[in-house]
Design a binder for these strands. Structure first.
Lengths: 190, 190
DNA sequence: CTCCCGCTGAAACAGTCGTTTCAGTGGACG
DNA sequence: CGTCCACTGAAACGACTGTTTCAGCGGGAG
């Protein structure tokens, strides 16, 4: 009956996982139902039945990816006090070649939400900025956290991480980009 | 006769300019001929005739945008010695609300070239990283420029600029992001 | 057994896509 | 005048899009 409620359908979860893996390789912005269905051994009919919509599917894959991202954020950011140490940990995760596909998908979604602020994509970019800033805030000393200076500090940390990530995703030059991040780490505690 | 040579057709240049303005508003990744033609007072037939292809059109708009970007890069980077001063100038240009559309188009193209490395988009991301790094290099002292440490320094400067730009494009929080960049400028000359 | 329900295949719907075919304009030039 | 040529309108082509309609499958429940 319900085509968009959150009932724990086993088949739906299975297909979502397959679609997620497909999106990691082929991107999400230009995704279309028939090639996806053919690749994951399903049919457009079933995808629409389970997710209600193409938009519903994309929304599901998007929140699946965001779940991955948030899980890592909390895992990495949890036990480390101090902003520089957190940046170092986050960077070692961002630079891991294993996560490159996920991060390219993230970049694609980020850019799409900038150009197309309505619908499924809307707000993703702003939301992910907020997510990361919140995590970085928890690693700052309480006194620093609430001051405008503290906000600038974690904004800067986030900017370095993301700028370096953009460079790495484009050039693959792990050595040069990591050297740049280390350079910043040497500057920060001063 | 020739449909893709670089002859200085007046009409072609005029339509390219209009298509460029259209792409600044509507993005380039999801562009399609008929709506574009209707918006700029032309027809799909003429666009294909003048640019040979949809791919040719996109390539033309892309290099048009890149021309804008490079012009600004050289103008801004020319007379200023020293990396921090250059970063400050570049940031004041990046943060200018007038350029927001161009920069969103840039971000969209960058991300698309990450996900789709073949065809028209391929290599754009790597090329633009190289462009900016080259400009930053010309502002470094000659001794620093050729060392690996110098490469890390300008890579870091570029990362800060682009990370901050991503934040600004998503949140529009000019104050916080500019404070972060200024924070970095205070750190750099040390 | 029957009934229901989660899931599925095949086919068609209307619409958009890039591109092509054909048939012209209107102006410059010999 | 006639001829060329850059440019254009209208329409159609085949392929692809998301979505819908209709018809079923198989297995657990009453």
């Amino acid at each position: 009956m319900n085509e968009e409620a959150a009932n724990p359908s086993a088949r739906k979860a299975e297909l979502l996982e397959a679609a997620y893996r497909y999106a990691l390789v082929n991107g999400l912005a230009r995704l279309s139902l028939r090639p996806l269905a053919a690749a994951i051994g399903s049919s457009p009919r079933v995808l629409v039945f389970l997710f209600g919509n193409k938009e519903g599917l994309i929304r599901a894959v998007l929140s699946r990816a965001r779940a991955d991202e948030l899980a890592i954020l909390e895992q990495v950011g949890d036990p480390v006090p101090g902003l520089p140490a957190t940046v170092e940990r986050l960077w070692s995760w961002l630079a891991d070649p294993t996560h490159r596909q996920l991060l390219k998908l993230w970049a694609e979604t980020y850019a799409t939400s900038l150009v197309e602020p309505d619908g499924v994509w809307g707000g993703f970019a702003a939301a992910t900025v907020h997510d990361w800033l919140a995590v970085l805030a928890t690693c700052q000393p309480a006194a620093e956290r609430d001051s405008p200076d503290g906000a600038a500090r974690r904004t800067l940390a986030l900017a370095v991480l993301r700028g370096a990530l953009l460079d790495l995703l484009a050039t693959g030059d792990h050595r040069r980009v990591t050297a740049a991040v280390r350079h910043q780490l040497a500057l920060l505690p001063a």
